[in-house]
Design a protein around this nucleic acid. Sequence first.
DNA 1: CTTACTATGCAAGCCTGTCG
DNA 2: CGACAGGCTTGCATAGTAAG
Length: 360
Amino acid sequence: MLERYALEKYAPRIINSNIKTRRLGYIIALVKIIGNNFLFTDDALRRLESWAEAHQKEVEEYSGKSGLITASPKHYPAKRYFHLAKDLRLIKVSRSECAVTKIGQPILYLAESLRNPFDLTNEQICYLLKRILENDSDCFLQLLRSLEKYNEIKNIFTQFKKTLLDHLEKKIEKLGDILKSSEIKRRRDKIIRWTEERKYLEHIIYPRLDWMTDLKILNISKRKEGIYEFTEEGKSFLSFLNEMEKANLENFDAWLENRYYEIFGQCFIKKEKNLLTTLNSEEHVKLISDLLEDAFRKFSSPNLPLSHMSAITFLEYSCTKLVVMGIIPSFNQLKDLLKRMAGYRFQWQPSMEDGFIIKI
DNA sequence: CTTACTATGCAAGCCTGTCG
DNA sequence: CGACAGGCTTGCATAGTAAG
């Protein structure tokens, strides 16, 4: 019998998006508002609303009105963003309090744009794109595929339901296990029962198009004219789509660990790049101990007797920092290097998809 | 177990710009 | 000018969840 957490791996990876949740900058802001505290959910929402009010000019300058958070008595755009952050596993809620997860924490320390918080930096893009792929691959990749085929939004609307269903069908077939595929089937049946196709699709398609715009996959100035055009980064990202789709049918998490950062570097980082493996062992030790020192200051809890930190937090944070520096890592290389670091104990627990690092 | 509340799925309505 | 489409907001019923 499969445990609940094991089955979760086979759930459809589709985020419950809403037409309002279109600007990823709000997600970053929300994570920062919560920070290292436990906040009452209501408090967090109210603070996000006032943050939005204070930064209204920036969002309008960046993208016009779409995705704007405005307070209204009957309608709670801040809450929609809150859910998106939850679906991306950046924040968690228990009872009426919320906090940033160990995956969300690195966001607190990624470089941010000084000019406009909605204009994301490479570090933020790298981090959020990975979160979106992890949690929304079934939808996001299919939409990329559609954009590649049909450049008119109208055509995307007319065929996306079929594209999505075909994809889910393929996934069910690939899994070939009633228990494992049950969640995907449920989702598929729900989509089949859609009565007003366009109404549901707009909650799915528009937000993702804007996420792609924020992630610099789509060209923002063209987007304002209503044209969906890939950027150079977007085009090269697209060239890996076949590989990504194939991995998505097999083991997408493993693929992300091994390939994501390399591909991100190739597509998005303009400066000269080196693979992490090309450094010599002296350079490795220096680099990793710098990263560890930095990360322990940021992520370890001061109340514990030993300095202790979640391995996944360290790995995601460090890989993002490295790739933007122009040093291309993969999870596995970094894990291997960690095992050999003197002065630290590193343990990985595959079933938890996490581990820990202790400073000895 | 019952009640109260909320998120979600669905539907409708409202602007704005376009084009005959 | 007016019909219409696309983009976006608001409204509502119900299933699901938390509180009592």
